[in-house]
Design a protein around this nucleic acid. Structure first.
Lengths: 204, 204
DNA sequence: GTCTATAAATAGATAGAC
DNA sequence: GTCTATCTATTTATAGAC
């Protein structure tokens, strides 16, 4: 945290950005070092190797999202508010860590070979938190019983796709689709909240 | 197509599987050759280089989906049926080409650096076809006007996530989430159809 | 903590025999 | 069409000076 760790933080940030843009295999240690304005040897001074650096980024990412989702589920509010908050929180975390949506997509595509059990537990915790919110709503008579996996996919899929696709959407806009690049975070969150609650409250 | 092309097809299939599992950078030409039961030099006999092989897989994938989405939009049926068919067709293509959801995710995560303009056009065509279906429904008084980008994300996000996450869902199931691995294609398609039509027909 | 230099392995791509 | 052998560049990782 002190000045002693400044270079370690630069490595961490540069690596997160590079891994998001080019993937684990597509990112060389040299590239990370250069982006962090450091020499390659410094990477190995701070981290055991490239894989360990990558895993630390995954832990930070899934740990934060898992914890915040758990806090929402444990809070003291009506189920419908918790669902709204779950979606908004998820979007907030995705926005605060721009590397998070691309890396989540890549890990899913790959089957998660870099995910250790604890980190997979954080990922699973997001799903379990959502499941507990739904269960609570069903017990309270506010929600219909719907598979948490489907609800989860209906939230996580669109939100991650929105944040991860900013680059492609700019190209799509240029090729003639009006509004592709100007879609905002607020519109997406409001839309997903509306669709999810409509579903859970049986208005569909 | 004849026996002369058998080895080319094996390269194509092996490459699609490997690129889906490990990404472009994470897949070596040697690995593809081995999976195709051929020598590395044969890859270069059939394809100019690794990037050109990858691009051909992208073209095949997005070309097929783009064409089928266009056919659904152009068909002669009520808008609500077209929406159902659009979703089912998208899932069918994703299932027929198991490499397609992971590769789509990776391309989105990367910003599509491997996508040439024609292929990006096919990807955009999927969105445009959906937009034309929605517009038709609005004109007919059957649909509310909703941003095609949001509807698109609500379909493509969950469906791709479902197919791409089979590996992770098996691990999640083992770590205690019942039903994570046994969710079926039919359940997902029916769910997305229901949510999407509920939204478009204003029952939400 | 930070660097240069380098080892050792692996990658993409080609030449040329059969 | 298919192979072996090889060239060249790049990559991860380490040794050791400052």
């Amino acid at each position: 945290m002190a000045a002693a760790d400044a270079s370690r933080d630069r490595v961490f940030a540069a690596a997160a950005t590079a891994f998001a843009a080019h993937g684990f295999a597509g990112t060389s240690v040299d590239r990370i070092a250069h982006a962090a304005r450091l020499n390659k040897a410094m990477i190995y001074y701070h981290f055991r190797n490239k894989a360990e650096l990558y895993r630390e980024i995954l832990r930070d990412m899934f740990g934060a999202v898992g914890a915040r989702a758990g806090a929402v589920a444990a809070s003291n509010r009506p189920p419908a508010d918790k669902v709204r908050e779950f979606i908004d929180t998820f979007a907030t975390e995705a926005e605060a860590r721009p590397h998070f949506p691309p890396i989540w997509f890549r890990e899913v595509a790959e089957g998660g070979p870099h995910l250790d059990d604890a980190t997979l537990g954080d990922m699973t915790g997001v799903l379990k938190s959502l499941a507990s919110i739904i269960e609570e709503g069903v017990r309270a008579g506010a929600f219909c019983p719907i598979s948490p996996l489907l609800v989860h996919a209906g939230i996580v899929g669109p939100v991650l796709l929105f944040f991860a696709s900013a680059g492609i959407r700019r190209r799509v806009e240029r090729s003639g689709v009006r509004g592709a690049a100007t879609l905002t975070r607020g519109e997406v969150v409001a839309h997903v909240q509306r669709v999810t609650l409509g579903l859970l409250e049986g208005r569909t």
